[in-house]
C-alpha cells in the first residue's frame, strides 16, 4: 500500500506571489507512449507545463509516475509521441539531451549524492565541468545554495556523514547550482524519517515561492494542497484526472481518483 502522510508545514505559503506564465511553455508532452519491451507502461500522455507551474503527480505504486518524469530528462526513452522541453524536442541526439539536462534538475528518492566527494565538491562538480564556471565562483554559488537549504556548515563533510534529510537538501542544492529552469522531484521525501520530511518540504516550498517550474511525484498531500497549482492523478500508465488542488481533493470526478483518495486520506 502506498505510504501517504500529511506533514503540515508551519507557515503560510504565499501562492498568490507565484507567477504562472500563460504563454511561456516549459514542457510539452504530446501523445507520448512508452514500453518496457512488451509492457505498455505509459499510454497516451498529454501534458503542457507552463513556466512557473508547480505540478504534483500522485497515483498508486507502479502507475508510471517515476517513468514519466524520467522520460522528461530522458533517463528513459519514449517510443511514440513527442516531448519538448524548453523548446527542444528530445530525440536520440546525445548533444541535445545533454543540453536539455543542463536546464532540468532532478532530485531522486535515494539522493544519489557522490559518496567519494565532499558536499562542496558534489555541488561544484557539474558547474565546473558542464558550464565551465571558474572554481571560486562555483564555490560561492554552492555556498549560497547550501545556506539556502540551511546547511552551510556541512560543506567540507562527506555525504556519508550527513542525515537523510540533510543529504536530500544537499541533493536539491546540487541541482540548483546548475541554475535549472525546471526541477523534477521523484518522491524526494519517501526515504526519510518523518521529522526530516519537513525540512526538505520547507526547501521545496521556498523554491516554489521563487517561481521555479516544478514537477513533483510525491505522496505528501499537505504539500500538494499548499503549493501545487495542479494535481495529476495517474493510474495504469495514463493520466486519469487533473485539477487544481482544491477541486481535486474536494471534488474528484473519476471513480479511480475517488477510490485512491478515499484510501489515502483516511
Amino acid at each position: 500500500m502506498t505510504h501517504v502522510s500529511e506533514t503540515n508545514v508551519e507557515r503560510t505559503v504565499d501562492t498568490a506571489a507565484m507567477q504562472v506564465s500563460t504563454t511561456d511553455v516549459a514542457i510539452e508532452v504530446i501523445g507520448m507512449h512508452k514500453w518496457y519491451s512488451d509492457f505498455h507502461v505509459l499510454r497516451d500522455i498529454n501534458l503542457k507545463v507552463m513556466r512557473g507551474e508547480r505540478i504534483v503527480i500522485a497515483g498508486p505504486s507502479g502507475s508510471g509516475k517515476s517513468t514519466l518524469i524520467r522520460c522528461i530528462n530522458r533517463l528513459e526513452e519514449h517510443q511514440e509521441g513527442q516531448i519538448v522541453v524548453n523548446g527542444t524536442e528530445l530525440t536520440a541526439d546525445l548533444k541535445r539531451i545533454d543540453e536539455v539536462r543542463r536546464e532540468v534538475g532532478m532530485v531522486f528518492q535515494h539522493f544519489n549524492l557522490f559518496p567519494h566527494l565532499t558536499i562542496l565538491q558534489n555541488l561544484t562538480l557539474a558547474p565546473i565541468w558542464v558550464r565551465g564556471i571558474p572554481k571560486a565562483e562555483a564555490e560561492a554559488t554552492a555556498m549560497h545554495y547550501l545556506e539556502r537549504v540551511k546547511i552551510p556548515e556541512q560543506a567540507q563533510k562527506f555525504p556519508g556523514q550527513l542525515s537523510g534529510g540533510q543529504q536530500q537538501r544537499v541533493a536539491i542544492a546540487r541541482s540548483l547550482c546548475m541554475q535549472p529552469r525546471i526541477m523534477l522531484f521523484d518522491e524526494p521525501t519517501s526515504a526519510l524519517d518523518p521529522e526530516m520530511v519537513k525540512e526538505v518540504l520547507e526547501v521545496m516550498i521556498s523554491l516554489a515561492e521563487d517561481g521555479m517550474t516544478m514537477i513533483c511525484v510525491t505522496h505528501e498531500m499537505g504539500f500538494a494542497r499548499q503549493v501545487a497549482n495542479r494535481v495529476i492523478f495517474m493510474d495504469q500508465g495514463q493520466i486519469i484526472e487533473q485539477n487544481d488542488p482544491e477541486n481535486f481533493f474536494s471534488n474528484p470526478q473519476h471513480e479511480r481518483t475517488k477510490l485512491f483518495l478515499s484510501q489515502i486520506l483516511h
Partner: peptide, 16 residues
C-alpha cells in the same frame, strides 16, 4: 482551465 478527466481508458497495445 486545467480540470481534466479521462473518459476513455487507453488499453495496452503492443509496442511499435
Amino acid at each position: 482551465d486545467i480540470g481534466y478527466v479521462r473518459t476513455d481508458f487507453v488499453p495496452a497495445k503492443p509496442a511499435p
